[in-house]
Amino acid sequence: MELLGIMLAVLGAALAAGFAGSGSAIGVGIAGEAGAGVMTEDPGKFGLVLLLQALPGTQGIYGLLTAFFAILKVGIIGGEPVSVNVWQGLGVMFACLPIAIAGYYSGIAQGKTSAACIQLISKRPEETGKAVILPAMVETYAVLALLMSIILLNSISF
């Protein structure tokens, strides 16, 4: 049973890293496509485009962070081995879900917003400040999900 508990925790960590990472990959890809389109016409906008393209990448980092927390919690890496029953394992897995789900969807949504903002700066480079704020608003919800995942992980005692 102990092994099943650990496996559930590992599944949670995998979901967090996998889904949030996928969301980021798609988001960065969407923004990258838009960036390439703009840079074909105006290569001088590389700096601004790179900044906006990088924004949807943070969800992947949050997912990775949560996955580390989860596997640290059950003692897979570092620390002393911990005894994890099925219910504790399930708890760890559920705790990983907020960042897995929100990371995936917000990564894509942020990618779309970044693409739109890349189009904005292609026409109005003077509005770069505003162009960065709009995709950053989407980031809020990824941060909230990360916060919730960490709080939930910390609330599980072994």
Binding site: I30, A36, G37, T40, E41, I108, A115, Q119, S122
Partner: peptide, 20 residues
């Protein structure tokens, strides 16, 4: 959530071309 990315590159390039 649909991934309407087929036109991401094309529309962005057009936005830059519209300046002309």
């Amino acid at each position: 959530m649909t991934l309407e990315t087929g036109y991401g590159y094309a529309v962005s390039r057009l936005r830059a071309m519209e300046l002309r």
